[in-house]
Simulated scan of single mutants.
Amino acid sequence: MTVLSLRGISKTFGAVAALTDIELDVAAGQVVAVVGDNGAGKSTLVKILSGVHPADAGTITFEGSTVEIHSPAAAHKLGIATVFQDLALCENLNVIQNLFLGHEIRPLRLNDVAMETRSWELLRQLSAKIPSVRVPVAALSGGQRQTVAIARSLLGDPKVIILDEPTAALGVAQTAEVLNLVERLRENGLGVIMISHNMADVQAVADKVAVLRLGRNNGVFDVGQVSTEEIIAAITGATDNVVSRRNQRGAQS
């Protein structure tokens, strides 16, 4: 079932067209990788879906209803969570404090026990390898910090999670750990949009690859039926747009 659908999404900044007539579909339990060179429009797309920037034109459909996303709070209320590349974690706070920062459980005072219990529930949902929820985030590895950021995004029970370059600057073991998290999200029935430059990561976990080039769609591919070379050709513009559109129709059929 398609949970999120974009049609004709466009965004300009002054005289610069950042996005033009973007189309994208994300189903429940599906990982869609969005790839493209620098300046392709990936960051702008993430900001539109997360409510940072409103789209200038186009339609966003969420769970069958046309919606407008004018703020991060509106995206959160809908069920769209975003984990940005910088993670926005407080290194001096522990895992529990980071997970519930700004959303503390407190009928009259902080309910530390309830927050610890919920923290472990979220981490177990991801099959995460965190030694303790009482350790400061500063003591965690890059992969473990990504785990905390993803777990925090699950607090609002989202239907779609956007991961912005989740494996950037991570080592081999930490990257594998994060890719396992992405698979857990899919197994839990969430739609996942993964922004990535790493083709190995894309082909390891994605179901579909949507290529953006110069702010436009340049192909949607089924990962099981496309090579890394074909994806790179679409990113660089080496493929003819007619071929890309044919691949797009085939992937959506």
Rank of each mutant, 00 (worst) to 15 (best):
V133F: 00
R184K: 13
I105A: 05
R249S: 13
V202T: 03
I48F: 01
R186F: 04
T82M: 06
A128I: 12
A74K: 13
S10I: 13
L126R: 11
I69Q: 01
D25W: 01
L89A: 09
R7M: 04
T239Y: 03
T59Y: 03
E165L: 03
G36A: 10
M199R: 06
F62W: 11
V31E: 04
G64V: 10
G142A: 05
E104L: 07
A233K: 13
E104G: 01
E68P: 01
G189N: 10
L179H: 05
E229H: 12
Q146Y: 03
N180Y: 09
D37S: 09
G191C: 07
I96L: 01
T59I: 13
D164Y: 05
S50Y: 09
V172M: 10
N241S: 14
P54F: 02
I232T: 15
I195K: 02
A73E: 15
I232V: 15
V95F: 00
R124H: 15
R118T: 14
R124T: 14
Q252A: 12
R145S: 01
M194C: 10
G79S: 12
T44G: 01
H70R: 14
T44P: 05
I232W: 03
S119N: 04
V202C: 02
T12Q: 12
V148L: 08
L93V: 12
V16W: 09
V172W: 02
G237R: 10
N217R: 02
L123K: 07
N111M: 07
G41C: 02
A206D: 05
